[in-house]
Each structure stands twice: as structure tokens, then as C-alpha cells.
Write a protein that binds this DNA or RNA. Structure first.
Lengths: 257, 257
DNA sequence: GAGCCCGCTG
DNA sequence: CAGCGGGCTC
């Protein structure tokens, strides 16, 4: 069972790249972020033709998340992160697939720091903590997966010292991430490659990809129930080199229950 | 000697199509209209690499004209149509190439009728008449070539009756065009195909190209000096069917002095 | 329908 | 640098 996350940065602009990657990588479950399309402009037909079914939560211009599966039933649980009925942003989609709870998320970027956007990121993390704690308490097979907009550790960024006041790396944010993990979530990519420099995002600017000046933002967290099921994983970083590509690369794990 | 005109509708958006057409058609002189690029954003390097040199007059967002040649020296004469120093629009470029005066133009559209845009078109035609009369008087080998935004005759449009109040077909405009010709200019495409329905433009909307609901807007006028040199000509209408194409098709003549 | 700008976000 | 959206032109 291959499970992937991919921040597409515009589902419609990215459709050729996405379809090519689906064809090559053949993931069973895919969580997408930054659709940047309203609900009615999701390219469902093309996704279906590629052999995938989908649920999604769109939004005009920004955000938007989706879950695709190949030959697997999707049971939607909820399309908002509980804890703030006033939150209008499409950043969370939770479903049951193949007996697992899949939580697809696109965490707020949070820049600039300090400011209201940073505060929103902190409060979003607090709400996420509540939901993920519940899942742990219930002993469910669950996966928290997506673009966390969090650089967990110094090893996950090219020049850490330049990022101290960036919302992706601020100490409060990294602490919140570590607090999540403490409950038992496994950062699967870091577990598979304990010492390696692994990036999932390279800025479009400054030829970041050529210089490999990347950061690790996209994470796949496994609940304790799934720890022993983790078999392999990686980042399809070559996709970042394709024409008309996203600034993120697809990130994936294989699990065997 | 093959001389062509092509309204590209955005030189940068059209670059792949333009380069492919240059490669296939191998014109010696090409007049381009609707660059839609400021002076500094003309893709000179790519044009040079394709074997062409160029002069151009750019403008931000709209208009813009260029002349390209393959192995032929270009001597720029002027990049504005005389007669109105306050006219800021980049619609005219005149050069001497291979001993001929080449006048590349992008005439105002003139819609809606009536109104100030229509009046501007009329006054532009008046200024053009003055310049072209001079060229006739001087007995020069000359070519007026470009997007005239004029449908000369009923045969040049799919349903003439629908166009009576369109600035492209208004009687004043067609009369002004006939007045130009009276001085001795030869509408070369119409001369080569006296009875045929020939179009050079198909609207992006309403599947106009599929239905062949086109109009003839792009013209190549030869001064009396060059009349007997006209050997052949046509419209590369297949180019209009390419991916990411312009709404105009390249139009060309071959002359042998 | 498809170019271009500008302003916004990341 | 590259998405989207809204306004403009043709």
C-alpha cells in the first residue's frame, strides 16, 4: 500500500504533471494540497480517467485539499478541522480508507512572524493537536499526512541560521510539532532516513532546486498502530525538475499491515 | 523572395508556434503585429537563434509591431506613422529591405462604432493614405503589409449582413481602403485568387475555425513597381489549427524582381 | 476565448 | 518565480 502527499500548487495548472506522476508512481492513496480551485473547478473527470476516484474541498484562489484513491473506497469523515466554526479556509480533509483514518492537511504558512497569520498557524496547530490526540487515545490505525509548513529540525533546511524568524522554522512551531509526535506519531520519512538531508520543497526563486537549497515541509505521520507496518518511503525529487512543475515534490511511504 | 505577415497575438505566448512556423515556411521577410510586449521583452535571442534578425517597436500590454528578415539587411526608416506626434500606440514600422520599402502596420480595430475608437481608426487611415500616396508618387518598390483590421469586400466575410455596423466592415472604412488602392496599390492575395473565399482570422470564440467562420483582415499591398513581380501567395491556415495558436493565420506572397 | 496587466500569496 | 483572480481589449 503506497500512500503519498503532493502539494500541487494549482490542480489545474499542474494536471499534466500530476497525471504523469500518478502513471509512473502508481500510489494507492494520494493527498493533495493547494488545489487553488473552487469546488466546481476540480478536474474530476481527468482524475477518474487516470484510474482514481477523489474527494476534495475546494476554495477560490487559495488552499484546497483532496484525497485520491486507486481501487479503494473512500468514506469521508469531515472536511474541516474541528475547533473553529468561523474558519473558512479549506485546509483539512479526513476520510476512512482501507480501514485507516487518513487526515490530509495543509497547515497555514504563518508568515510573516510575528502577526495574525502566525497566530492563526499556532491556533490551527492547537486544534490539530486536539484531533490527533483523540486518534491516539482511540488506538486507531491513522495517518496525518500533508504539507505541514513546518521544518522540524536543523537537518531539514539548507541554512538553518537564516530561518530563525521564519514561521516555517520558528521555535514555537517546531515545539508544537514535537508535541504532536510525543503522543506517539511517527515521522515516517525521518524514521526511514535518520541522518539524511531530505527535502520536499524548493523555492521557485533563486534557482533553489539547482542549488539543492530546499526544505522538508511535507510529512507523513503514522499512529502507533501502524508503526511496524512501515516498509519504505521517499521523495520523488525528480518530479521537481519537470516542466511546469510544483515547488513541492511528491512524498510517499509504503506500508504493509 | 517570400514575404509574410502574421498577427501573433502576444509574441511571448506565441514563441513556440512562431518558431515552428518560421522553420516550416522559411519566409525571407516577416511582419509581425500584436507583440503585446514592451520594447525590452521582445525575445530577440530566440528569434536570432532561429536564423532571423529583427527590428521592433514594443508597447506594454497592447499593439507592437516587428519586422524579421533571414539574411537580409534591415534599414529602419521610421517607427511611427507621420501625422500625429501625440499618437502613443505602436502600430507602424517602416524599413528598407532588399531595395524595397516595407511598411508593416497594425491598424486600429475601431470598435465600437460609433465612438472615439472608430474616429481614431479613420484618422489613422487618413495619415496612412498620405504616406502611401507619397510612396506611389515617388515610384518606389514598396509593400504595405500587416493587419489592416479591414474586411475589404462581402466575399471576405462569412455573413456580411451581420457586420454592417462593425468597424472592421463599416462602409467608411472599406471606402478608405478602396481609396488607398485607387492610387495603384495591388491587393496581392485577392489578385491571385479573384473569386475565392480567403480568410486570415478566425475568432477564438464560438468554434469559429471549425466552422470556417472567418474574415480576411491581413493584407499585402504591392506598389505598381512590384506588380509584375508577384508570383504566388496564400494563407497558412493550418497554423490556425495548432496548439496555443494565434487567432490570425500567417499570410504571404512570393515576388521575383 | 485568450492574450496582457496588477495585486495578492506563498 | 509561479500560481489565481479581476479588469481590460480584441
Amino acid at each position: 500500500m503506497k500512500i503519498a502527499t503532493y502539494n500541487v500548487n494549482g490542480i489545474n495548472a499542474r494536471l499534466p504533471v500530476l497525471l504523469r506522476w500518478l502513471e509512473e508512481a502508481k500510489p494507492d492513496i494520494v493527498c493533495l494540497q493547494e488545489l487553488k480551485a473552487p469546488q466546481e473547478r476540480f478536474p474530476e473527470k481527468e482524475i477518474n480517467t487516470a484510474g482514481y476516484q477523489a474527494i476534495w474541498k475546494g476554495q477560490k484562489s487559495w488552499n484546497g485539499v483532496a484525497i485520491l484513491t486507486r481501487n479503494l473506497e473512500i468514506t469521508k469523515v469531515q472536511d474541516t478541522l474541528p475547533g473553529d466554526p468561523g474558519d473558512e479556509q479549506s485546509r483539512y480533509l479526513e476520510a476512512i480508507i482501507d480501514q485507516m483514518v487518513i487526515c490530509c492537511l495543509y497547515l497555514p504558512n504563518g508568515n510573516p512572524y510575528p502577526g495574525p497569520k502566525f497566530d492563526y498557524k499556532l491556533s490551527w496547530l492547537k486544534r490539530l493537536k486536539k484531533r490527533t490526540d483523540e486518534l491516539i487515545t482511540m488506538d486507531l490505525p491513522a495517518i496525518i499526512i500533508g504539507d505541514f509548513n513546518i521544518i522540524p529540525e536543523p537537518i531539514d533546511v539548507h541554512k538553518p541560521e537564516r530561518w530563525e524568524n521564519d514561521a516555517l522554522y520558528r521555535i514555537e512551531i517546531r515545539k508544537a510539532y514535537q508535541n504532536l509526535l510525543k503522543k506517539g506519531w511517527l515521522d515516517s520519512i525521518r524514521t526511514l532516513f535518520p541522518e539524511e538531508k531530505i527535502y520536499t520543497f524548493w523555492d521557485y526563486m533563486y534557482r533553489s532546486y539547482d542549488r539543492d537549497a530546499g526544505i522538508r515541509l511535507d510529512h507523513i505521520l503514522l499512529s502507533p498502530y501502524l508503526k511496524s507496518a512501515l516498509k519504505s518511503g521517499g521523495v520523488d525529487r525528480n518530479v521537481r525538475g519537470w516542466e511546469k512543475t510544483s515547488d513541492h515534490a511528491p512524498t510517499w511511504v509504503c506500508i504493509e499491515k
